[in-house]
């Protein structure tokens, strides 16, 4: 399995010139970043006028470009000087700052109409230096962010939490600093397209948006696409029992690929949004012997 970037090096070293160049050149990476940013802006639910936004972990400014496209004015912060260098080369419209999000934001109170952050927050769960304490850094970040947001503003974080525990740590810290909100999960059935967005409201909580999913068949029974955090105890617990059951059943796996098995597999792939052959009376039938 691919190693998580957080385990390789601290962000200011991991995003070196080589890595930053990828964000400047690779169209695939740029497309992924822009779709995530566009989705984050959609979740921000801003009024229909230019707003003043904060982009935490702006990197090479890909997310900022999407913000500019929507007509917003933004300020970005990042800890990687190489990535900021790419942003300067690309002549992004927002103002950039070289800063560490774990040291808190450095803006006066009640400034920003909203905040987005694409794939940055999970870095705070790591202690890269001796003086780093993830919980303290998260709290410092959320507290200073809360202060510099306009009351009622929303902050959207796209993130890749490593474990349920780290997700819990993040949300607990956010709640303690006065945020309310929850998690929106897009395409929860797919490993590839699954994206998590942490939606935090500064001040009055609003209704949590629904996550996106493919195919409407299983929507009602499938996993929930948004989880609101009202009290922090009711969060991710992957249930010990299910884990144990899985382990026990591993050896009893049926190896017959009968019609039901194929049907289940097809449904699963359909839910993930893959292209699947249509069902017919021939599904799962044996071929005739060839002469």
């Amino acid at each position: 399995m691919a190693k998580r970037p957080e385990h390789i090096a601290p962000p200011e070293l991991f995003y070196d010139e080589k890595e930053a160049r990828k964000y400047g050149n690779s169209t695939r990476m740029m497309a992924v970043q822009s779709t995530m940013s566009a989705r984050a802006i959609e979740l921000l639910n801003l009024p229909d006028r230019p707003c003043y936004l904060l982009d935490v972990g702006c990197g090479s400014g890909l997310s900022g470009e999407v913000l500019s496209e929507y007509g917003h004015v933004w300020v970005g912060t990042d800890i990687s000087s190489a990535m900021l260098g790419v942003a300067v080369e690309r002549e992004v419209e927002g103002d950039l700052c070289y800063a560490d999000m774990g040291q808190g934001m450095f803006f006066r109170n009640g400034i920003f109409d909203g905040c987005i952050s694409i794939s940055a927050l999970q870095w705070l769960c790591n202690a890269d230096k001796k003086c780093h304490r993830p919980k303290e850094r998260l709290e410092k970040f959320f507290q200073t962010l809360y202060n510099c947001l306009v009351p009622g503003a929303r902050a959207i974080f796209q993130l890749y939490p490593e474990t349920p525990q780290s997700m819990q740590l993040i949300t607990e810290c956010a709640m303690r600093c006065g945020f309310s909100g929850g998690l929106v999960i897009d395409y929860p059935n797919s490993t590839k397209a699954k994206k998590m967005f942490l939606c935090l409201d500064a001040g009055t909580p609003r209704k949590l948006p629904e996550g996106l999913s493919n195919g409407s068949i299983e929507e009602a029974s499938g996993p929930r696409t948004s989880i609101a955090y009202n009290n922090s105890s009711a969060m991710f617990h992957p249930g010990k029992d299910t884990l144990r059951d899985n382990r026990r059943n591993k050896h009893k796996k049926r190896n017959v690929k009968d019609r039901d098995w194929i049907q289940a597999k097809k449904d699963k792939m359909r839910r993930r949004g893959r292209r699947v052959a249509r069902d017919s009376k021939f599904t799962g039938r044996k071929r005739r012997p060839q002469f």
Partner: peptide, 14 residues
């Protein structure tokens, strides 16, 4: 530098 203010603090300044 290059229009980007360096706001990173040293360990003892946090």
């Amino acid at each position: 530098i290059m229009g980007i203010p360096n706001m990173i603090l040293h360990e003892d300044e946090v």
